[in-house]
């Protein structure tokens, strides 16, 4: 479970995050929906500890990221936006590196890598150097890397960016499988259809604030037309006006 409690973050004069509070429970896909620059990525960065909030807290399974980062981060799998791989290492070596940094080793680690390769259908790619991998192939390896230590919680920043239709479908199926296995999944997107297809719970973010939240159906019911798109637009315009 991930809890964000009144997070704020400012860069110079820009208030990127202005008091975001959110709970993402286990067995549930929580989507952060918002336009580019709404503060989604910053919110996630505050969660996985590469940036520190000015105020507020981020908790992973009840553990404060700021005060006990190593404990909290061990329970988190992270796929940042445009995550890069090591081109001179094979897919397996890329995944193994993260496994080892998460404290795994030996046969158990190799078995886990094999299992992830099966799950993500990496096949022969596993033993190839990642130089020249397609965007879809790279995302798969980066995802395997994020999942290697079997984290209870998974954070994905714009995971479907640059993926083709088939790869997007596969990723969706995987996310749903992980949810059904009881994991807590939080992901961001600016593509509304994607959020609608995947999320059990949506938080619409605009100007560094949560301007609307609920299930896709509940959000859609809030506007006369009954579509999520109109709900999104309505939330954004409300959020923009003071």
């Amino acid at each position: 479970m991930i809890e964000l409690d009144s997070l704020t973050k400012r860069f110079g004069t820009i208030e990127a995050v202005r008091g975001i509070s959110l709970i993402a429970p286990d067995g549930c896909v929580t989507g952060l929906l918002g336009a580019n620059g709404a503060g989604k990525s910053t919110t996630l960065r505050l969660l996985y500890g590469v940036q520190r909030p000015d105020s507020g807290r981020a908790l992973v399974d009840g553990i404060d990221v700021a005060s006990q980062p190593r404990l909290a981060l061990a329970r988190l799998g992270v796929l940042p936006h445009n995550a890069g791989l090591y081109p001179h290492l094979t897919a397996r070596e890329n995944i193994r590196y993260y496994g080892q940094l998460q404290g795994m080793s030996g046969v158990a680690l190799e078995r886990r890598i094999d299992a992830l390769a099966d799950m993500l259908e990496l096949g022969a790619l596993l033993e190839r150097r990642t130089k020249g991998f397609s965007q879809g192939e790279r995302i798969k390896v980066a995802l395997a890397r994020a999942l290697v230590h079997e984290p209870q919680n998974l954070v994905l920043d714009e995971p479907t960016n640059g993926l083709d239709v088939l790869a997007t479908r596969n990723l969706r199926a995987l996310i749903l499988r992980l949810r059904d296995a009881g994991h807590c999944i939080m992901f961001t997107s600016h593509v509304m259809q994607e959020v609608a297809a995947l999320c059990d719970e949506i938080a619409i973010i605009s100007g560094g604030r949560v301007v609307a939240r609920g299930t896709p159906a509940a959000l859609a019911r809030g506007v006369p037309s009954g579509t999520l798109e109109d709900a999104f637009v309505a939330a954004l315009t409300e959020g923009a006006s003071p």
Partner: peptide, 14 residues
């Protein structure tokens, strides 16, 4: 430049 620093820094290592 490769974008591999951010995921690396999100790992539980000092």
């Amino acid at each position: 430049e490769r974008g591999s620093l951010e995921p690396l820094l999100s790992l539980p290592i000092t």
